[in-house]
Amino acid sequence: MNLPASSIPISSGGHARERRRLAPLLLCAPLLLLLLALLVWPLTHLLWQSLLPTDAPDSGITLRNYLEIFSVPRYRHALVWSLELSLAVAAGSTLICLAPAWLFTRCQFRGKRLMRGILTLPMTFAGMIVGFLMVILLGRSGFIPQVLERLTGQPLLSGISYQFPGLILAYLYFEIPRATLTLESALRKLDGRLEQAARSLGATRWQTFSLVILPTICPALISAFAVTFSVSLGSFGVLLVLSIRRFTLLPLEIFTQYIAPPTDQGLAAAMSLTLLTVAFGAGFGLRRFARSREVANA
């Protein structure tokens, strides 16, 4: 007997299964709606804005704003410096934080909790506070330059907080907690018996580290690098305090183009989307690579 599909009764078990399947979606619905509202519409608006020339919005769609980022030296430098700074900070924080993360997961020592607290403290600071701390420490009349001047008679490191190395230092301070926590969580999962196995096979401590530990934690290193790179690229608070007109980064240029007259909101939108694309692309690509390494190591 052939029954039309609509006449086939659905059991109460089927209904229950359907409800169970939909439940997570319904629970997440408010968050999804909020994300859609805050992400999709503003991004679409931003994209539209970036494709319109600010001085002649009725002249139609153009890529002029994007071309301007790469053709005008100031903007191009801002993009390159942003990338350089983020790469340096990501690489630096990942490498620097490997040792404390290792210490926190593998060693028991007095003051461990205090040390961990101090190291993760910058995460609770706003970027501007970190900027002010750097000025107090390494500004033109900062504590360290003053001490060095008294000791050597030379104004050593004076105002370095406003230069590229100073910015790197401030960003590093800001990113250290993120890198430490990411690495610490990965190192906790590392099987300590692998080190024992390597040593029992004749590997020295260095060989154990370079041939076993490092390749095993490679995905965690990539993840820490990806997180710190993306966050550094978009970070603004530190920059607002420490950057000067002579030296600028893309987030500051976006702020300037939006706020400071003469404003160019089309250009600011193009810069925002460029920054977003680079941060998202790098983060996505690196995390994908890290996952592929994790599968290989599984």
């Binding site: 018996r193 196995a197 029992s200 096979l201 004749g202 590997a203 076993v212 095993t216 290989a296």
Partner: peptide, 20 residues
């Protein structure tokens, strides 16, 4: 004498093979 200089072979309970 450290483990790496004893020249002993060691087979572990969970094998501890290097996953990478």
């Amino acid at each position: 004498l450290p483990a790496e200089r004893r020249d002993f072979g060691l087979v572990f309970q969970n094998y501890s093979l290097f996953p990478h």
